[in-house]
Each structure stands twice: as structure tokens, then as C-alpha cells.
Design a protein around this nucleic acid. Structure first.
Lengths: 372, 372
DNA sequence: AGTGTTTTGGCAACCGGTTGACAAACCCGC
DNA sequence: GCGGGTTTGTCAACCGGTTGCCAAAACACT
């Protein structure tokens, strides 16, 4: 009844009224000058270029983004005009009709966690290689804020990467069906995920501890909803008994220095001689707390972290840790996201690179022979 | 001669052909369902809402962004429709006519430097409080890449913050006249800058060292084009002699662990007993190199860093350092940028908060009495 | 010279919002 | 019941690009 039907428009106003003067072969240098006003410069548009080069705006558009589509001579003229006007494309104007922003969102739980350094580096590398810009957002380890951030960022990116997300599976799946999405350090039904291969690192770590004579281990687990914490625990649980070692889980805990500190009393009470912590931050926190109590590491307690973050070799003793190939993970996540975008746009099925991303043990000073 | 003049258009195609069925008071819940297809959901637009609510799109626009402009009854109906369609505004479409993206760019030299943690945190806090989203970009300590990043990010943000930029003054001024721009840790003629007040921290540090008996100091300087490195050196140079101490500059060096390491031989050769490094990373690098040579810190060499970054208390001994209020700096930079944006848009002159951002000495273990 | 084919460039619609201008509808007091 | 002032909602232009369609121009080949 009230649907707007067949509205007719009056003729469109003339967009470019002829600017009589300004001979095309203008006074070269003088052109760029900006007189007084405040921050004057209204950036040049393709319409300005078109006028200057004496062609249609659509021709400018093509000359600039479809090399070869246009006569070489014209193309050159247009490029010259663009340079003269110091033209730069308006990404929003381009995004509107095409729906592509050439931008990817990377959501981190906590910028303050050095774990993300290499992920970001790797991601940035892969993205810029393909001409994409990354936009980083932080969720402060809160699922709610993360959902909000994803919501906010989502409309202006072509794809999303969630790093060690705190979101629930359903929420993730929901986002995944709106946009190409990849999760890092997590596996969710129907969603692409990039996870390291824990096995080699864990095998080495367990062998290393066994060799040092440890038989009673503890795992300091991370947040209860952390997929990766669970994965690490599951792997340890599966392997340790086979080597004749006992292992207990202590946690969950917050994945920070304080989370590690807070676990000390439970660690001591458990009577174990070696601890694997969910991540390096917790390992370091635990180590510092132990040292403050006068306990010597590794004499009294051997400690192993996960990830090999920046700073894990600042401590004394330096931290032994199971290194995760974070840079590769970030890089691969972006590459996969890009594949998904192509798949969505062009129908070419994404090839997913399934080669393993192995972890490895880095032996430093925080592990040692069991006290006689 | 070839200017396009007075083009007339044919009637605009009907945007919304009446979708006969779908009674407005639709089957509530059932509506959201998405059938098969690939990632189907084409997001709802204000046109969809308009159709559903039986009003004009412009009314929808106003209902959504100008509360009060529209009859309460209609507004409610529109909000209901928006909710039902799970509408979310397309930021690009909004940005195009208004020229405002509600987005700010933050350019960092190196994400890997923990110095930026708190800056980013503070900035994020201030930005999101005002409904702005931050875009982080990294320049990897290269002026060229930084210019490129600024160039790339600039068109899609309302303002820019440069943190310890490696750009030249002219380049910075150039960007500043295109967009509201604030620099952190730098002062440039005609550009707004946020810098900490070095004096208190440096005074305390010098007094502390004097008290410990040191009389021969060195400053490990950072990159040659670092304004902040120069500022720190200048302040030290101005103060040290007055306290009866000698001071030499060793540098320039790269502002990383390795930069600090590499300076060791020159430090030892200089015969000083205490060193202030351009930043904590260099200080830690130097300390570690010294310890590897069997030199005891602080016995043989006292070391002070700058900034108090994450991890500066991981070392042993823990690093004494001159703390910079990084979070406040990030926060204030964003607030100022926002003021500049308002000034530009509404002409209300920006009020700049000029209260000092004092540094302070944090005494930990890396400084001690001079060896007898 | 005449016809067929390929290039080249212009036209106008479109992406999804915002906004100035204006007219219709409503409200008011007298 | 009427003039004047407000509200409310519609119209259409606009932001700055992209792109399908098409006609004109250029080129090729008999």
C-alpha cells in the first residue's frame, strides 16, 4: 500500500560546470599552492582529474584501476593529471559500490600480552603483501567486549581473524556466516582455525623433564573457556602417564603474571617438582613468586612455559618454554582469510594449507635435575 | 570545450518494488531465518527498514541518528523494524557524505616495543569513550614505511597520532595540514605534540646516582633522528655537571636489546660507572651483555633505563628506570586529536590541556653504590 | 570503397547513507 | 473557523567512486 513506486527524478544538476580558464597545459608548478584558509585542501577527485584531462570520470576510474583498458596516450594524460592534483583515491567511495574495503580485522584478547607480537607481525606481513590493511582491535580478555569489537569492526572489513578468542562457539559461527573468518588457537565446528601442532613440543618437554628425573608434574591451566589451555592439558594428560609420570591440573587461572603468582601455594601443596604453565606469562609469574619465597628455580621447582614470548629470556634463570611458531600462524591465518574472501567473491574454492605448524622445546635455565 | 554540461537523466529506476506479501506485522520470530546459499545475508539497509516501517528512507536515517527529530511513535516503529532486520549501519556509506569516519589512526614505530602497550591502552580508552575506533599501524622503525602507512591510513581516518615518529619535520607538517594530527614524544613547529616532563625523573635519577657515589656517567643514545633521545640527552647534559658529575654520550644506537648489547665495549672503554640508556630495551640489552662478560650489575656498572616498560622487572637485578606516564600520554593525544577534529568541523577552538606529564624514577636493583 | 571487428570512451545507474528545502498535517489561541 | 506557528515526514541532491551497456572511432580485410 505505501510502497514507494516508480518515483521520477528531475534532471541531475550539472556536476562539472565548465571552468573556462585554466588551460590544460597549466603553469605546471604553480598549481599545487594552497592559499590561506584553515586546513584548506579538499582532496582531488576523479572528477577534477577528468576535467583537467578532458575526459569522462569513468575513463579516469578505468585508467586508474584497470590498466590497459584505456588507450595508452589517454592513460598517460590521466596519470599526469592525477599526479598534478596530488590525487588519492577515497577508499570509502570505492568500498561503497564494490563492497570491498581491502581491510582485514585482527581481534586480540590483550595487546599487552607479548604473545601477540609475532602474530601481528606475521599477519601484517601477509596482509600488506596482498595490499590489505590490518585493523587491530583489543577485547581486554572479555568475551563481551570482543563481540562488541567484532560487531563494530565487521562492517568495514573484508574478513576477520580472531586470536585466542573468548567468544562462545555459537557466537563465532554466527560471525563466520556473515564474513570470511578465521580463528587462531581454537577449533570450532564449521569454522576455519589455525592451531599449532602441540605434539612435538610437548613430547620434547616431557622427555626433557623425565630425563631430569621428574616424576610428578602439574599443569597450570589458563582461562576456563580457553580452547588452547584445554588442548595443552589434554595433550599432557595423554602423554605424561606413558612416561611414568603423574600429572595434575591446577587452575583455571588468569593468563597473566598474577595468575601465575596466585597459583604458587597450590603448586607447593601439590608436591610436584615440575610445572608446565599455560603460557609464559603465568610461568614467569609463578617463578617470581617462588623466588620471592626463597625457593630456588630450578633446584626446588622446574618451570616450563608455552609460546616463547618476548621477555621470556629476560628472567633469571631464563625461562624454558615450548615455542609456538606465532609468526607463521599469523601469516597463515591472513592468507587463509584472503583465500576465503576470494572464494566468496569469485567462487574459486579456497585452498587451505594444512602443513603442520610444529612447536618445539626451547631449553633454557628454568628446568634442571630434580633435587636429590 | 569538452566540459560535461547539463546532462539530463532518465527517471531513476524504482528502488523498492513493492514486495506484496510480507504483512508488516509479520510472523515476528520467523523473520530472521536465512535459507541456504553460501554466506547469504545481504545486510539490511535503511531502505529495507523504510519499506518495513512504511516510511521514507530519510525518515529512517533521522530516526536512527537524530533522536527527537521524529515523532516518538514513528521512531519506535522504525527501531522495531531495524531490530527485526538486524540492521547495522554501513560506516562507509555514512562516511561518504559526511566525511567523518569516526576512526583515528595510531602509527607506531614498532609493535614489538612494549613501550607502546600503555600508549595504545590509553589511546584506546580515550577513543572508545568518545565512540571512535582506533586503527593501529606499524612502521617498523622506518621513516619510509611510516610515510607510506600514514598515506594509506590517512584517507580513512578523521585524525592521526604519530608515536615517536621517524618522519622528518617537513613531512609531519605536511600531514598535519591535511588532517588533524598529534605527535607523541616529539615537538615540531606548528604541530601539536605530547611529551612527558623529563625533568623530575632525570633530577631524581641524577640525585640517586650522585648519592651512590657515581661521578662519571654515560648516556646511551637512541636513533640519530629520535627527538626524544636528543631531549633526554640535552636534559642530562644540562643537569649532570651541576651535580659535579661528568657525562658522555655513546651512540647513536638502535633502540633495541641489540642496540644496548652493541654499546658494551664503548661503555667499558669510557670508564664510566653508571649508564643511562635511551630506553629500557637498550638498558636491558646492555645489562645482559655485561653479565655475560662476568661483570656484576650494579657492582661494576649501574644501569638506568627510560620508560618502565613491561618486562623491565623481569630481569635480575630488576631494572631501575625513569618511568614515563605512557597511558596518560596516549589518552591525552587522542583527546587532543578529537579537539582538533571538533575545531576543524565546528570552529570551536581546541582547548589544549597543558598540565605536565611528569616522569619519575623507579629505583630497583640495577643501580647501586659505586665499587670501592 | 565497403563491410566487419575490435578499441576506446561516454552515459547513467548504483552502492547506502545524510541533509537542506519544503509541503502537509497538526496545534494553538482567538 | 481562520491565520500563524510547529511538527513531522518526503523529495531529491549529494558524497566519490565503479561498471554494464552502447555508440563512435579506429583499424582490418576484401
Amino acid at each position: 500500500m505505501n510502497a514507494p513506486v516508480g518515483v521520477s527524478t528531475t534532471p541531475e544538476a550539472t556536476r562539472g560546470e565548465q571552468s573556462v580558464t585554466s588551460d590544460v597545459t597549466s603553469d605546471d608548478t604553480a598549481a599545487a599552492e594552497t592559499r590561506p584558509g584553515r586546513r584548506s585542501k579538499a582532496p582531488a577527485t576523479i572528477y577534477d582529474i577528468a576535467k583537467l584531462a578532458g575526459v569522462n570520470p569513468s575513463t579516469v576510474s578505468r585508467a586508474l584501476s584497470k590498466p590497459g583498458r584505456i588507450n595508452v596516450k589517454t592513460e598517460e594524460r590521466i596519470h599526469a593529471a592525477a599526479k598534478e592534483l596530488n590525487y588519492r583515491l577515497n577508499p570509502m567511495a570505492r568500498a561503497l559500490p564494490t563492497g570491498r574495503t581491502n581491510t582485514l580485522g585482527l581481534l586480540l584478547a590483550d595487546i599487552t600480552n607479548p604473545m601477540f607480537f609475532e602474530v601481528v607481525r606475521g599477519a601484517e606481513r601477509a596482509a600488506s603483501r596482498r595490499g590489505y590493511t590490518l585493523i587491530l582491535a583489543e577485547s581486554q580478555e572479555s568475551g563481551e567486549r570482543e563481540a562488541e569489537a567484532a560487531e563494530r569492526v565487521s562492517p568495514s572489513v573484508d574478513g576477520l581473524v580472531l586470536v585466542t578468542t573468548r567468544l562462545g562457539d555459537e557466537k563465532i559461527q554466527e560471525f563466520a556466516e556473515r564474513k570470511p573468518l578465521v580463528v587462531i588457537n581454537r577449533q570450532v565446528e564449521g569454522v576455519h582455525g589455525i592451531v599449532p601442532d602441540l605434539e612435538p613440543g610437548i613430547d620434547e618437554a616431557l622427555a626433557h623433564l623425565a630425563e631430569l628425573g621428574h616424576t610428578a608434574l602439574a599443569f597450570l591451566s589458563g582461562p576456563a573457556n580457553s580452547w588452547m589451555s584445554r588442548a595443552r592439558w589434554d595433550a599432557l594428560l595423554a602423554k605424561a602417564p606413558g612416561l611414568g609420570m603423574t600429572i595434575v591440573e591446577i587452575g583455571p587461572g588468569v593468563p597473566t603474571l598474577d595468575g601465575g603468582r596466585d597459583a604458587l601455594s597450590r603448586v607447593l601443596a601439590s608436591g610436584v617438582t615440575a610445572v608446565l604453565a599455560y603460557n609464559d606469562l603465568m610461568a614467569i609469574g609463578l617463578m617470581r613468586a617462588a623466588q620471592e619465597q626463597g625457593l630456588v628455580v630450578p633446584g626446588r621447582l622446574s618451570i616450563i612455559g608455552f609460546d616463547d614470548i618476548f621477555g621470556s629470556d629476560f628472567t633469571s634463570p631464563q625461562l624454558s618454554t615450548i615455542r609456538t611458531p606465532l609468526g607463521d600462524i599469523g601469516e597463515r591465518a591472513i592468507r587463509l582469510t584472503l583465500e576465503l574472501i576470494d572464494e566468496y567473491a569469485e567462487g574459486t574454492p579456497a585452498r587451505v594449507d594444512a602443513s603442520p605448524l610444529p612447536t618445539e622445546l626451547v631449553v633454557r635455565g628454568s628446568t634442571g635435575p630434580i633435587q636429590p
